[in-house]
């Protein structure tokens, strides 16, 4: 880890803990400092950099991943808390080179500009649609209340979620 390398002396590192976690279906195991945040474990240890670090203060949702299927902010969870659990990141969405319906929705409806919030926004959408396959616009807006977009606004994001919902239910055109 970058932080570990930046530490001045061995004595000032640690304590450590062994973490075993399944990420996007693949088991991983690593010895990390107990204070390692899940987002750093995902990005710096597993090198899955699709999960972004935005505000680092539990506000923006750029770091959203699924923990046992539930959308959570990985900047506010310790890696050790994920011990023995299932994590899904944006890298786990596409299968066999084919975009997930949620990814397709964000492409088709132009649900992004800079794209920084997009991985988190999509993970929240995946969790929403698993629980509520046919959400109303109001339900969508409430569900993404913990994910901030600072450029495109939410109109096209809502459309992207609606597209994904339609597509996931097996519907064709809207």
């Amino acid at each position: 880890m970058d932080e570990a390398e930046a530490m001045p002396a061995e004595a000032e590192v640690g304590p450590f803990a062994r973490v075993r976690v399944t990420v996007n279906g693949a088991p991983h195991e690593a010895e990390v400092e107990t204070r390692t945040l899940l987002v750093h474990f995902i990005r710096d240890v597993l090198h899955l950099t699709g999960t972004h670090i935005g505000c680092d203060t539990t506000n923006c949702g750029a770091c959203t991943v699924l923990l046992d299927g539930k959308a959570v902010k990985s900047c506010t969870i310790l890696a050790v808390q994920a011990e023995g659990r299932q994590v899904r990141t944006v890298e786990g969405l596409a299968e066999d080179g084919k975009l997930h319906p949620v990814q397709e929705g964000f492409v088709e409806e132009h649900g992004l500009q800079c794209g920084f919030c997009t991985p988190g926004m999509m993970m929240t959408t995946v969790a929403l649609l698993a629980k509520n396959p046919n959400p109303s616009e109001d339900e969508i807006r409430h569900a993404i209340a913990g994910n901030l977009c600072r450029c495109t606004g939410y109109v096209n994001i809502v459309k992207a979620v609606q597209y994904a919902a339609q597509k996931s239910r097996g519907g064709g055109s809207k």
Partner: peptide, 9 residues
């Protein structure tokens, strides 16, 4: 309380 993601934890 907070937002839906925080409420999951």
């Amino acid at each position: 309380i907070a937002d839906p993601l925080v409420r999951n934890m």
